[in-house]
Amino acid sequence: MADSAARQAPSRRSRNGTRLRAFAAELGEDVPGLIGFLVLVGIVAMAIFAPLLAPHDPAAQSVLARLAPPAWLPRGNPAHLLGTDALGRDVLSRIIWGARATLLVGVAVVLLSGTFGVIVGLVAGYVGGRTDSILMRLVDIQVSFPGILLILLIVSIVGPSLTTIVVVLALTNWMIYARIVRGTVMSVRAAPYVEAAEIVGCGPARIILRHILPNLVSPLLTVAILEFTNVVLAEAAISFLGLGVQPPATSWGLDVASGRDYVYVAWWLVTFPGLAIAITVLSINLFANWVRVTTDPREREKRFGWSKTARRLAGRS
């Protein structure tokens, strides 16, 4: 008895460590997931260290250096690796600085809408009854709203700014969290082990902390990451339409929009900022895929088995 207790104590402390290591090992096995993760880390670093990394002031105009093509092309200027825009601003520096707006909006919106949605979902699922049906009807109704059009209307009336975008996107994106949390809470509460815990006298706080939240981690994490990509794409689209981030601030969507008029003479103006968005979203998607598969043991086993079988089948036919 004493022996087993002594053995348990340290193992419990080191469990987090080993789990982290196991996670890292699995990330190494999923090459696309690993690439996505590394690229994402790079983009975050780029946003944080923008002042150090950017070769030029992103707003510095230079009439002489207007519309310079990327450095590797004839007439390219080695000082401007990815060329310059119609005002002579350095495209690369603008992309580096633009990462800030993208990530900031993404993180802020996901945090805001996620918090709100989780609270609504917890209340609806836990209180149940009339509260639940009213809240969920509200969700149903808002899901049927003409999303983008309302967003554009609101932004154009309230006045476009970073804050407006964050608030408006948060107000239009919370429903999915509420639905997921409510669904999970309902099913977990109905599970025999939770009913047993309630009969034994566990309070709501303990039930939520010990039983419900752990079940929420995996679906919420996956959804939050995927929502992040939606938010990034939405911000880019709104900025592209001229209703998002306003000059002199930078945003990838905004840069694509301003390059649009020169699309026939300077392809690099739309290509590179757009590529930045695509790479960011793609790496998040790859990473999210990995998170989803890793946090769901069944999914993991399936995938492994399938790839084995596929290799065998491919060899046969």
Partner: peptide, 10 residues
């Protein structure tokens, strides 16, 4: 996944 990741306007 690549298709999902590209902004429409781009």
């Amino acid at each position: 996944l690549v298709g999902l990741s590209m902004p429409q306007f781009w």
